[in-house]
Simulated scan of single mutants.
Amino acid sequence: MKNKILIAFLILAMVSCQKKENSTSKNIIKTIVQDTLSKTLGGTANLSKVPEKDNKTVELIRARLLVLLKNDLPALTKGQRFFYYDSFDLNNDKKEEYFVGFSNPYFCGSGGCSGYILNNDGSVINSFTVTDYPIFAATTSTGNFKDLIFKSKNTLHSMKMKNGKYPSNPSVQEKWKGDIPAQSSVILDIYAKKLEKYSF
């Protein structure tokens, strides 16, 4: 009988401790949330460890697309007015260029999709057509700019900078020989990387 009472007492004590721990945990979490919220609203929160999305880049690209596609805007539905972008320093000048791509029927066909490569200031390096994603930056360079490997119509093509531009139609460029080098950088991997899409 004493054993049964002792076991019951131990179980009751354990349940009581668990409730106290849960209550304490909930109170701690509630306090942290309230403190963070008040500091955020008051402008005193330390957000240095929070990854910052580059809204300036998104706005720069959005503004540029509204100019570049002004003649297309009336034909575009709301669901077609979005883009993806990825950054990559093509010429080792410590400034990233922007690869802008689309993935809807207005910009894409059986051969691939259209897109742009923009300078860091938003000016156009060039547009491209009939491209499948992703795009690869090769380990070689031409004129200080990385050579690119585009996939078009299920074939890899070499894209080299010439006179300040890459070719706009990869499908008519020289075919890439061999596999994509393992050291190549992957750019604008819309499907595998799950890049965020933005409206324009």
Rank of each mutant, 00 (worst) to 15 (best):
D147Q: 02
N169I: 07
L156A: 08
T40M: 10
N119M: 10
N163C: 02
N119I: 11
I149R: 04
P74V: 06
K193W: 00
F128W: 12
F9A: 14
I125Q: 06
S87W: 00
A75H: 11
A138I: 00
D93W: 03
T77P: 00
L73M: 13
Y116L: 14
L156N: 13
H157E: 00
A192P: 00
N154H: 07
K162E: 09
K26N: 14
D89C: 08
N46I: 06
V186F: 00
F99G: 04
D89P: 06
F88Y: 14
N169F: 10
Q80V: 10
T129H: 07
S123D: 09
S141A: 09
V50T: 10
K193E: 07
C113V: 05
N22E: 15
F9V: 11
N27P: 02
Y198C: 03
N22V: 06
P134D: 02
G42S: 11
L68G: 07
K146S: 10
E52R: 12
A13G: 13
G101I: 00
C108M: 05
Y133G: 05
N104G: 03
Y84G: 04
K95A: 06
D121Q: 07
W176Y: 12
L37A: 09
I29T: 08
M161Q: 02
I28R: 05
L60H: 05
K4T: 11
I61V: 13
G42W: 02
K4R: 10
L47I: 14
D179G: 03
S16R: 05
A63E: 09
A8L: 14
K95G: 01
A192N: 15
G164D: 01
L156Y: 15
K49E: 15
K95E: 04
D54W: 08
I187Y: 03
A137P: 09
R64S: 11
I117H: 07
Y84L: 03
M1E: 09
G79E: 15
I29D: 06
G109W: 04
G115I: 06
G79V: 00
K4V: 12
S141P: 00
I149L: 03
E21Q: 14
K197L: 08
K53F: 09
A192G: 04
V33Y: 11
L12I: 12
S141D: 05
L12C: 11
E96T: 08
K19H: 08
K70S: 15
S127D: 15
S185I: 01
I180W: 01
V33L: 12
Y133F: 15
L41D: 07
F145T: 00
Y84K: 04
L37K: 15
F107M: 10
K19D: 06
I5A: 08
G164S: 01
N120E: 12
N120P: 02
T24S: 14
L188P: 11
S185L: 05
K175G: 00
E21H: 10
D54R: 11
L118N: 13
V100G: 06
V67E: 15
P105I: 10
K194S: 09
T139N: 13
G79N: 14
